[in-house]
């Protein structure tokens, strides 16, 4: 597995896709800065994530995009393995197919972490240029927030790895990245719960990846953090088991 991780990391820093995705994030944040959306927030912290229960659209969307871009990168390298036929070289050598999945997950986590750091640093720089105060409630809160987002990124990556291995169709997988990352199903559940007055549906919606992501805050709230950790781990386990089963049964 270590060999596969080394191989994919070398690929990561030598293929334009990784830099294109970083550029995409940069362009998105630059657009926010230029259109004045950033200035509407009261602090840099509010740009990164919700400080209190009232989050803002920009930070929610920005973080979702970080998660989505990380997942797009992972499904793309899997897609490339299959389209070039290199997967045959990999799976002939690595008899244990789950090592392929785990390697991709590790690389996806590293890429997501890099994107997250890039996003936060860029936010701080752009916020500072706009003259916004830092306003981070606590460093501990920020660390827990980042850990939570990273865990959700791992779960989302695992889910999308399974998706790409099942359908082996990159455009569909990229579409799924947006669907799961932006939380289309989560919003639908929440709206249904609200309009039909079924609180259970709204509760369930907070247990999806996007739903869990939306409750993450920069203020330390132990219950919310545990919620995010549990959700991430459950989704991760589900996605990994499913992906391994698919990989074992499916021909190459």
């Amino acid at each position: 597995m270590l060999n596969l991780i080394k191989m994919d990391l070398r690929r990561t820093f030598r293929t334009p896709l990784f830099y294109a995705l970083l550029l995409g994030l940069g362009v998105m944040l630059g657009t926010f800065a230029m259109t004045g959306v950033m200035g509407e927030n009261q602090s840099i912290a509010a740009l990164i994530g919700p400080v209190s229960s009232a989050g803002n659209m920009m930070s929610t969307m920005g973080m979702s995009m970080v998660l989505i871009f990380g997942a797009i990168y992972v499904v793309s390298i899997i897609g490339k393995d299959f389209s070039t036929g290199f997967i045959k070289n990999i799976l002939t050598i690595h008899a244990n197919k789950s090592s392929y999945i785990l390697a991709k997950l590790v690389v996806g986590t590293i890429v997501s972490a890099l994107m997250l750091v890039f996003y936060i640093v860029l936010m701080i720089i752009l916020g500072a240029i706009q003259g916004l105060p830092v306003g981070i409630p606590s460093i501990g809160g920020l660390i827990l927030f980042i850990i939570g987002k990273l865990l959700l990124a791992v779960a989302l990556n695992a889910l999308l790895i399974g998706f790409e291995l099942t359908f082996r169709n990159l455009p569909i997988s990229i579409l799924a990245c947006f669907m799961f990352g932006m939380g289309g199903a989560t919003m639908l559940l929440s709206m249904l719960g609200s309009s039909l007055n079924i609180p259970l549906l709204q509760t369930i919606s907070t247990f999806t990846i996007a739903g869990s992501s939306s409750i993450g805050m920069l203020t330390i709230i132990a219950g919310d953090f545990i919620h995010i950790v549990i959700c991430s781990l459950v989704w991760l386990a589900f996605a990994l088991i499913t992906a391994c089963l698919i990989m074992k049964r499916k021909d190459v």
């Binding site: 690929r11 070039t84 036929g85 290199f86 997967i87 045959k88 070289n89």
Partner: peptide, 10 residues
């Protein structure tokens, strides 16, 4: 292995 076609990154 070379199965079907060379597995190269173009």
């Amino acid at each position: 292995v070379i199965i079907e076609s060379p597995a190269l990154f173009p």
